[in-house]
Design a binder for these strands. Structure first.
Length: 321
DNA sequence: GGCATTTGACCGTG
DNA sequence: CACGGTCAAATGCC
């Protein structure tokens, strides 16, 4: 990523922050669910955090571009010829809550790192032959950031350990609905306190295997407020068009978090090769649907333009409304 | 008892 | 030989 691209991304993040602030302002009235405001607030913070990070990165690389690469390459044994990108996403979840069941099989102190690296493989490795694995390491620079490196693809059936997406019931009484909403908000706020960021890295063994990366991620859509008749459906829908809202199947039903695909696309930090935005677009737009899951997975391919098209009208204030 | 985690040993690679 | 990744016995938890 060169200086010009970086500036473009910073601009995008700042614009996104501005637009989200505008949306938040519209939802300040009491009838708007506080949950929505919290999500918006978090997203705004993420946008500005990303912009600041980009600014830092730009400043750093513009004066010491070689050193910046040294961070990732020094003393690192390259065990596979693949390449990897790191994508920062904001999450209300811990780094391990990505919807799959992982089993830790090792931990290693990494030279030059303050925190050990944890090695995880899919719980169903032997029962279903699922070869997915990941490495999780806390960032030295910011302990709230986790670098998650995924390898392999999930071939397991997640139905056995995933919590089905909660679908609003039309027969649910208003009282129960309100109670559940309050409870959800409380849990959400609790999660917000534990807000963390994770730095995700997608690594492929070879270029042909790149399609396997994103399908490995369960991105169930939080549908709690979509079309529930309380007047917020439109807003949520617009959120869904611009963002991915998640329910963490491994956690309680209310443990949802949101990740903007824009964030995902905007932080393509190349490690081994110069990965372009279009490169990542290819990864995301490649066959992404996981059809053997009861959970509604988001078809990320529909978000291509949102994520990477430089001409996409982020300036359009009507987009979020 | 079954499953997950911990941790030292072992192995492959550069 | 150093380092990162994996194995597997020991241990802990439910």
């Amino acid at each position: 990523m060169d200086w010009e691209q970086s500036n473009l991304l910073i601009l995008k993040e700042l614009r996104q922050g501005r637009e989200l602030s505008s949306v938040l302002r519209k939802h300040l009235h009491p009838s708007s669910p506080p949950q929505t405001r919290l999500v918006l607030l978090h997203k705004i913070l993420c946008s500005y955090h990303n912009a600041l990070s980009l600014l830092n990165w730009t400043a750093f690389t513009s004066t010491a571009p070689i050193a910046s690469h040294k961070i990732h390459t020094s003393k690192q044994r390259k065990t596979c010829s693949g390449r990897s990108e790191q994508i920062r996403v904001c999450s209300l979840e811990g780094p391990l809550e990505d919807g799959y069941c992982w089993r830790k099989y090792g931990q290693k102190d990494i030279l030059g790192s303050n925190f050990p690296r944890g090695y995880y493989r899919c719980t169903h490795r032997y029962s279903q032959g699922c070869l997915a694995a990941k490495q999780v390491q806390r960032s030295d620079e910011d302990p709230t950031i986790f670098e998650v490196k995924y390898r392999g693809r999930h071939t397991c059936n997640r139905a056995s350990h995933s919590v089905a997406m909660k679908v609003p019931s039309t027969t649910e009484s208003e009282e129960n609905a309100n109670h559940s909403r309050v409870k959800q908000q409380q849990q959400h706020e609790e999660k917000q306190k534990q807000s963390k960021e994770i730095l995700m890295s997608f690594e492929t063994e070879d270029l042909d295997n790149k399609d396997d990366i994103f399908p490995s991620f369960p991105f169930p859509i939080e549908s709690e407020e979509v079309g529930n008749g309380n007047g917020n459906g439109l807003f949520v829908k617009s959120l869904m068009e611009n963002d991915i809202a998640f329910v963490s199947p491994a956690a309680s039903e209310s443990n949802y978090f949101s990740v903007s695909p824009f964030h995902m696309g905007s932080f393509v930090f190349d490690q081994n090769v110069q990965a372009s935005e279009s490169d990542l677009t290819e990864r995301i737009s490649a066959p992404t649907s996981v059809t053997n899951s009861p959970i509604v997975d988001l078809d990320i391919s529909s978000l291509d333009k949102l994520e990477f098209d430089p001409s996409f009208p982020f300036d359009n204030s009507d987009f979020f409304t």
